[in-house]
Amino acid sequence: MSSLIDIRDLRKTYLLGEIVVNALQGVTLSIERGSFVAIMGESGSGKSTLLNLLGCLDRPTSGRYLLGGTAVETMDRDELAEIRNREIGFVFQSFNLLPRMDALENVELPLLYKVSDTPNEDELGMQALADVGLVGREHNFPAQLSGGQQQRVAIARALINKPEILLADEPTGALDSHNGAEIMNIFRALNQEQGITIVMVTHSDEIATYAGRIIRFRDGLIVADAAVTKRAGDHLAAIAPVDAEVTV
């Protein structure tokens, strides 16, 4: 079976005014279904650029990107939007919930842009909220929720269309360590119990150890790529053991 994510010699060049920025300088990488990958690196190392490309928010300057066997680097705006809607869930550092919508409406937002109609939206949204432990909070507005709760709403939103991949950009960056650990435990459970592939950018070594594999970036290139041997939260792993630890 081919990898879920398969990128070959991916390059991305920006033009910042008159300065050419080589954000990615030829990255080759494959990520298997069901894996949990942490991407680390300094600011400007290219990790966020990679995440944007993986999330089909951007197109590479050159190189190949096969997502589930489909070449996405040549798709247009709207085709990419459909891929994002169907295949990818995003979790952001700053949650990015819409302040004028309650938790349930925020969670149901991706259903609005689905090609096919969903008959039981509210049922689905309530279930997604229940999955992240937010029963009874569905009509709270983001301002009425704690940071950890907001991020859990965001996770529920990311999962409502049942994507294969969850992309997280510093998901615990705005949270205290307790809430951060809670979010990581949810990630871990999603990965191990539901087999959702997670790619997460983080600055924190501690958070990174929740993943099964850590990729380090510097200057637009991968400098290290290794499996995690001593994983955080392994007490959870006892419930559902890691079935595939990937090494490259």
Partner: peptide, 16 residues
């Protein structure tokens, strides 16, 4: 702008 970006990330097409 941010809301628009979020909607796009969640799959909103140009037309939406």
């Amino acid at each position: 702008t941010r809301e628009i970006g979020l909607r796009q990330a969640l799959g909103a097409k140009t037309r939406d």
